[in-house]
Design a protein around this nucleic acid. Structure first.
Lengths: 192, 192, 192, 192
DNA sequence: TATGAATGAGGCTTCATTCAT
DNA sequence: AATGAATGAAGCCTCATTCAT
């Protein structure tokens, strides 16, 4: 497995892969999953051939973009979970995910339509996100910051729904905050 | 010569148009806007030519499906607004819209991607929905059932977000109710 | 053959047939043979069904339009041949044909492309035109008004070519006359 | 690294483009502009995709074929204009154009019907042909070989008309020559 | 390894023709 | 006999993917 020498070409290849992922994330988010592979490649400054060398399929690219977003969520959310008290960790991560999730539903749908099982495709990453969320939810519920009765599935649905609402709203920060407060208040334990 | 009923052919045409609309609504909802016109036609039991006679474009069909859903919302929501007190009218219509809105965001996105201005395309219907929602929101706010500060745009975003959460959740009624309660509680005026 | 009674419906049908022929001639000339049968029918104020009752095929309509033009040429050219001296009869009929021939080449091409033998399709009419032209050509040659050596085939080619030049030129009468004079002068016996 | 010849792939692409142009010219001329893109591609030994990579539209291909023919005319006609005396240059180029123009009118018509402005589409080439013709016409008129009074527009109409007559005539060289002589004699200054 | 030209299945749409009313 | 809605084959074009250079 260890092979001692890492050739410069590998470095190039890695750089290309990373750039493709970055660019694809942006382009998919801005113009939908309908953009052509050609356009993504051009935006990344490589040929289509290179794109397909790194991702055997358009769906594979889609899944990779999705996976990377989720990894980032896990990474940052994991930190929050360590450092902050339960309520702050939960709501902070909620914010994080919502901001990272623009268009994510469209991604899943495209993958599903292509016959890909999103969970399978995302594999470990997906499981990590779910584990993180479960931990945060349980903590916040124990701390009395979030109503009981909600389970992980509900939370995921709410997260995606909130992200979708944000997509609708556009960039106005005040409006985004108002909508987020509605959801946050709704998540808190009911009165009396 | 007597013109008691003077469109025998039109009856068939109308039936086909209605069936196409019904079938398209179902199929788009179930399998996404990617379904081919051929498949929709087949599912409706007509030839593609008939589909295109009634809807000059795939997008036109999409828009028509969307419009019809919104018309139904306006019709039923309008009744509620007449008959019920403000809170019930507001939350009842909210439910109605959420149930009618499966996949609606995807529709808009597809239309927008095709260069169609959804508002323009839906024209009067869209305006009617907005007017209805505005009336219900203002009434519920005056009655103290919904927090102030939220405007129509926020409400629309929340509606679509909730619909999206429902799409995620699938048919389990208990889960749907839990999520809906989170949003409803969040919409109420904040404590102290 | 004689059938004594001509029913009123026949009159309607005949009127429709005539109008379809008129309208089709105009529309084909103005917009090319690509116009749809639907458009022709609409322009004639009838349904497509009626068009196809009278002409079993779009090509049949094309051929009928062509045939009628040629019949008119034969009729008027025949008169000229009776009444005028050979030179006037020849050049007069030449003018006639050229004016009546706008787009005719396109017709033939369309028919040929559809696998129709234009000569067969036009049958008697075509033969009559050729007979007329042959008579006029021979007369004019005998009278020394047209060079010898040209045969009927050459003449037909020149006629269509002249018509094509006119199509190119548009309606400017002075230009049309200049071009026509070039051809007429060329048709005369060569100098020395 | 040395850039003596630096387009290895382009060589193939250029070969394909050229072959497509050649094949399309032949096929359009033989069977009309109605031939399908599929057939052209097959005749050229490439897939449809390749055709559309080189010519974004069927009309673009048509225009390119037309443009290439005109370029050839300009090139060969230009040489003649340099080397020969005015009359020979004029009539020689006339012959050239007529031979190169089979079906050209049909091309223009098809392009026009598709909403393409032929002059615009052909741009510089079209202008070059017109300039060449204008020069040749003026020279021949000054030399007394062509009648005065004819302008460029008349000449173009006559050229296309002659080409059209040739299309009618088929390959018989004697007949073609007879018809050409009619036109040439007609172009000369009128007697007395 | 990167490139981008080539491929061709498949999508949307048109339109001549048929047929129920 | 007239109507016009329905039909579906066929055309143009797109785009994910492959492959020669």
């Amino acid at each position: 497995m260890s092979d001692g020498q890492n050739r410069p070409l590998r470095a190039d290849a890695a750089r290309n892969r990373a750039r493709l992922l970055d660019v694809a994330a942006t382009v998919f988010a801005e113009r939908g999953v309908g953009v052509t592979t050609e356009e993504i490649a051009r935006a990344a400054g490589v040929g289509v051939g290179t794109l397909f060398r790194h991702f055997p399929t358009k769906e594979a690219l889609l899944a990779a973009v999705l996976a990377r977003r989720m990894e980032q969520v896990v990474a940052r959310g994991g930190e929050l979970a360590e450092r902050a008290e339960p309520a702050e960790a939960f709501f902070g991560t909620y914010r994080l995910i919502v901001e990272q999730s623009a268009g994510k539903e469209e991604f899943s749908r495209a993958l599903t339509a292509a016959g890909v099982d999103v969970h399978q495709a995302l594999g470990a990453t997906s499981a990590a996100v779910r584990a993180l969320l479960e931990r945060l939810l349980a903590g916040a519920q124990r701390a009395g910051a979030v109503r009981t009765g909600l389970d992980l599935t509900d939370l995921v649905a709410l997260l995606l729904g909130t992200a979708s609402a944000m997509d609708q709203l556009g960039p106005d920060p005040a409006a985004r905050e108002r909508v987020l407060q509605v959801v946050f208040d709704g998540l808190r334990p009911p009165r009396d």
